[in-house]
Design a protein around this nucleic acid. Sequence first.
RNA 1: UGGGGCGUGGCCAAGCGGUAAGGCACGAGACUUUGACUCUCGCACUCGCAGGUUCGACCCCUGCCGCCCCAG
Length: 367
Amino acid sequence: MRIVVGMSGGVDSSVAALLLKRAGHEVIGVFMNNWEEEDENGVCTSERDWADVRAVCARIGIPYYSVNFAKEYYERVFTHFLDEYRRGRTPNPDVLCNREIKFSAFLRFAEELGADKLATGHFARIGEANGEYALLRAADENKDQTYFLYQIGQEALSMAMFPVGGLTKPEIRAIAREAGLPVSDKKDSTGVCFIGERNFKKFLSGYLPAQPGDMVTPEGKVVGRHDGLMYYTLGQRRGLGIGGSGDGRRWFVVGKDIANNRLIVQQGEDSPLLYSAACEIEDLRWLAGHAPAADGEEFACMARLRHRQPLQAARAVIHGDRARITFDTPQRAITPGQATVLYQGELCLGGGTVDTAGSAGGRSYRG
RNA sequence: UGGGGCGUGGCCAAGCGGUAAGGCACGAGACUUUGACUCUCGCACUCGCAGGUUCGACCCCUGCCGCCCCAG
């Protein structure tokens, strides 16, 4: 089989390519450069990564290419990312990036190269359920990345391969080391995919105008000033700069009053306003291509509201293009704009974007 | 300008003769393909200022400065 491997310059995708090559496939390594900008220190990480991809491919003995989807990334991912921040929400660009770039634009590029499959170094597995392709959680529960992949759909699943999804991180590093790959001990990358680790406030300020305003308690008492609502997210503690006031406990963001440009803050990690046992999600996406249950029919599942969060027992009811998720245990800082991903056993069903936390039509943090 | 109290790092706050607790904030790491949370370190050669007593003072004495309260 001819297989295109999306290579980031990291250990996971490098080992993915290695394993496919060993299995006798015709492997082509392709590096994507989707963000042409240095970080605040003038460092261009992608140069370093591209160099690593070349070194790894040379070591494995496969051809390699570099493609640039910066335009697509900006138009299909980054624009939406900024729009969400303008709305006072907290988007997850990597979820969109997988759907729009890696498993869309990049997938088409692979097909143009005559690829039968597109492989990546994601921690996830592909299986089958009811005659359809299914996305399954990774063998390494600690590294599972299905949270970022829940929007990709059947077509992508039919073409995708995740060669390292059945391995643990230590196993992957061991394989890389034995094979003499130059990236065997390279640190895992973090930060927004393709953009990298940034001083978030500084980074955002370069794209969105800041509108300072008051920080107020739920009772309306002004306790400080904020630099712009988009710089804060629900449940956030650091960066408020109002320590020492009040009863001395830590302050957390518990809401955003968009209409009045006020950030609502409260003291204490146990603030009831930070917890909610339910949420409404929108923009539903199901990996099977169709909903897991009929409209209005409640079903049990497990869910997570953020990457690496332990799965939470929940019940879901779909109604049209939205769904209501109720958790057995109240969840901390359910944040509009973030993804809620549902599971049943090893199977990742899909999910949606949090619109509001709490009861429908009741208190929300949209403002 | 009679009486009483107070002044410790950005904020709050222990210490009350033996060589500056703690919390919040902040900074740096760790964790992490979002944003966060969390964790671990770090953070006053100095205690409003100036003198004095003492082997030794943030803690005792004197003066000054600045707040607060009660009286008038």
